Computed example of a mutant assay.
Amino acid sequence: MSDLIKSDKEFNIRKSVINNVISNNLNINWDSQKTIKAKAFPQITFDDAETHGLKELVNQLIKTNDRDSFLQSSESSKYNHQFFNNLDKLYSCNFIEATISANKKIKSQVDSDTTSFAKQFVKSLRLNNELNEGMTLFVIVNDIIDALEKQLNLANINRAKIFASYNGSFDVYLKYFSHYLATKSSENKLPGGNDFLDLLHLIYLGNGKECKIVTNDSLLKNLDVAISVEDFSDLYKI
């Protein structure tokens, strides 16, 4: 969203692309990342107001002719461009802060271990896909249930039962996000400012069957689920 309103030129380019997608009746997944995560657990019912807000924002974009008109028309809406810009920043900041906290705890454990076990475990962490993906899924389940308990004033939701009900519908994201986290932890490094949002794009690949992401992003381009813009253009003669 920040790129959309960066300048008149950027606005016109992105508005043109969105208009082409809408006018050609291409299939659009409007679900937010929170909705996609919630849908992966059949027992959870989740109505995401942000999704409805995003649709309305796109409708306003299509109706307006220039950047200033778009900003003015959407300003009074709760789910305006600033809302989504702030949301992206919040996701990134929270992710970096959580990584800093986790790295400190891991380092403390390693430093206090008189044997080499903890150090070797951390170094080999990124090689244990099942453990990494399980930990990521555990955090996602806790985040979802924490939000539901707060929103609906519920308590004592069976988290283990929800965890076990995962249907595999965001396996691609789970795989690569988990490996990324484990690598950063094993190397005691911090994520880049936009890494969380870049990785979050992978959640729209679902379980990865016959689906790839078209990107030249340095973090994603070498993944086996990615295809470069140039290769995509050559493949489809664009």
Rank of each mutant, 00 (worst) to 15 (best):
M1R: 12
M1H: 14
S2H: 04
I5G: 12
K6C: 12
S7N: 13
N12R: 11
I13E: 14
S16D: 03
V17E: 00
N19T: 04
I22V: 02
S23R: 03
L26N: 05
I28Y: 00
D31G: 02
Q33H: 14
T35I: 05
I36R: 01
I36E: 03
I36H: 02
A38Q: 13
A40W: 15
P42V: 06
I44S: 12
T45R: 14
F46T: 01
A49H: 14
A49T: 10
G53A: 12
G53N: 13
L54F: 12
E56W: 08
Q60A: 08
Q60N: 13
I62F: 02
T64F: 04
D68V: 14
D68H: 12
S69A: 09
F70W: 14
F70Y: 15
L71Y: 04
L71Q: 07
S77Y: 09
K78F: 11
N80V: 08
F83M: 11
N86H: 14
L87Q: 15
L87E: 12
S92I: 00
S92H: 11
N94E: 15
I96K: 10
A98E: 09
I100W: 12
I100C: 04
I100H: 13
S101N: 07
N103A: 14
K104I: 13
K104C: 10
K105R: 06
K105E: 06
K107S: 11
Q109P: 02
Q109M: 01
Q109H: 11
D111G: 10
T114M: 13
A118I: 08
A118T: 05
K119T: 15
F121S: 06
K123G: 06
S124F: 04
L125V: 05
L125S: 03
L127G: 05
N129D: 05
L131T: 06
N132I: 00
E133K: 14
G134T: 08
F138K: 13
I140P: 02
I140R: 06
N142C: 01
I144N: 03
D146N: 11
A147Q: 12
L148H: 13
L152M: 08
L152R: 08
N153H: 02
N153R: 00
L154V: 06
A155T: 00
R159E: 09
A160H: 14
K161R: 02
A164P: 04
N167I: 01
G168H: 01
G168R: 04
S169W: 03
S169K: 01
F170K: 01
V172H: 01
Y173I: 04
Y176C: 08
F177R: 05
S178V: 03
L181A: 11
S186C: 04
N188F: 15
L190F: 10
L197V: 06
L199S: 00
L199V: 02
H201D: 13
Y204S: 10
G206M: 01
G206E: 02
N207H: 10
G208V: 02
K209F: 08
E210Q: 10
N216P: 13
S218V: 11
S218N: 15
D224A: 06
D224H: 08
V225C: 04
A226C: 03
S228G: 01
V229I: 14
E230W: 07
F232N: 09
D234K: 00
L235W: 10
K237W: 00
